[in-house]
Nucleic acid binder design. Structure first.
Lengths: 255, 255
DNA sequence: CGCCCACTTGATTAATATCAAATACTGTGG
DNA sequence: CCACAGTATTTGATATTAATCAAGTGGGCG
């Protein structure tokens, strides 16, 4: 385990994109990340129909929500990156209407509802930041609907890479148009609502245009501006405040 | 049906699908619906980029969220029916990342953030019910992603009608497979991510199969079970508890 | 070695968009 | 009341996008 990434919890890094925190708040946020469970790649975290236990917080690695139709068609509904919380209030519902699974090896902390209640009762600023994170996730879902409904395969693929890049950058896991995101083409197909064959051809198209390069699980976006332009990507839907973030401050390595 | 339901606010009827309320809570919920603004069909309620002022509550008529791409393509992201709240916490964000507009003539109450804060501070059960409503809306968004990504034009169209039917039924605005929903085909196209021509043909296909009939803004679903089957619609994603329905189990406890 | 995947390519088919045009319907001004 | 303009609905023809089918390559791993 890299001690560097564990020093600051990705949740804290993420929420800092909304507001600054004092020492006590910082400690409270970091305390949430205790005792993570370790998952293998493609392991189920919680399945559709199950009763939600607590709130899942991704500390490292990638996970996703997905839903399957009775005939086997599958759709990924969104990705979780380190620092993401899977449904702050989900324990209100009696059962999950979709599944959550890891994409890569991942560490996921499960926060009991009680702990959420305790921290929100005590720290209004943290509460607001958690709501902000929820609102951003909803905004991302909406963007996915626009993606699937009105963007072409190429635009849609490009848009996904832009989204992941900016989200990872917000937790210091992407720099200079590059980030680790070891996703397979069959998975991309399920995320983009395309067939595997068409994903393959779309990636070739983007590569030929010099917009995207994928090597050993690392995605490079050599000309981010051109890519965002092509995808009609608008970073404002992520509602980052960019308060102190020229380009990547710290010395961090992923696990 | 009863004069009782006719008098109550659609918000109360909707939230009653989650939990029962005592007299004081009932009064508090109904008080929210004061002083609605009256909108014409297709009128903008709030536009992308604007700063949210308060929380919009739809009392009558239909509205929708939508988003447009720079080149003019448009996608409807979801519908609001009477009783729906447009973003409980939206005032946390500095600007809207999408627009909200009416579909039909509508009454919309604007609740200042302060009023939400007051009611949630005082009535925990109402607070939980409002969170529930938010979670259901997120679940609907996810279902839309699945819709656009993995359902065919026919299935997608059928699924939308099932969704609206069940949501309207939860506020007593649909009965016996019929409901008023005066939506045009160009609008349906923007909601379903299809071209107008294809929507037209898809509707003809559903009509020929005896699954859907549309007349003067009233939609009939003559064989709901067959339609749900065809659309692979699963009502559980709406998380209704059916507590006051004839053949339904008793309401569950709220924590 | 032998599988199981992921990745890739080519050929074909199916789904859906686009283009064009005719027919209704709705509200408005005269 | 009519004429008109602007939409909405419908149909046919064609083009484009993406899915499906089929097959081969290559890597990782028991």
């Amino acid at each position: 385990m890299s001690s560097l990434t564990r020093n600051t919890s990705p949740l804290l890094r993420k929420l800092s994109n909304f507001s600054p925190f004092d020492a006590e708040e910082t400690a409270a946020i970091e305390a949430l990340a205790s005792e993570p469970a370790h998952y293998q790649p493609r392991e189920l975290v919680i399945g559709e129909g199950e009763r939600p236990q607590g709130v899942n917080l991704v500390l490292s690695g990638f996970a996703c929500r997905y839903k399957a139709l009775p005939d086997g068609r599958r759709q990924i509904l969104g990705y979780f990156v380190p620092g993401d919380i899977c449904d702050l209030r989900v324990f209100i519902l009696e059962e999950m209407d979709h599944s959550i699974a890891t994409v890569t090896a991942a560490e996921v902390a499960v926060l009991p509802g009680e702990e959420i209640r305790r921290i929100t009762a005590r720290f209004p600023r943290i509460t607001t930041a958690l709501w902000w994170a929820t609102l951003v996730e909803e905004a991302i879902s909406r963007e996915w609907i626009l993606n699937m409904g009105r963007r072409s395969a190429g635009e849609r693929t490009a848009h996904l890479f832009c989204e992941i890049y900016h989200r990872l950058r917000a937790v210091d896991l992407a720099h200079d148009g590059r980030f680790m995101f070891p996703v397979t083409q069959p998975e991309l197909a399920d995320a983009l609502g395309l067939s595997v064959v068409h994903v393959n051809r779309t990636l070739q198209f983007l590569r030929r245009r010099g917009l995207v390069d994928i090597e050993n699980g690392e995605i490079s976006l050599p000309d981010l501006e051109a890519l965002e332009d092509y995808a009609m990507f608008n970073v404002r839907h992520l509602h980052l405040r960019e308060q102190a973030r020229p380009d990547a401050p710290a010395p961090l390595e992923t696990t």
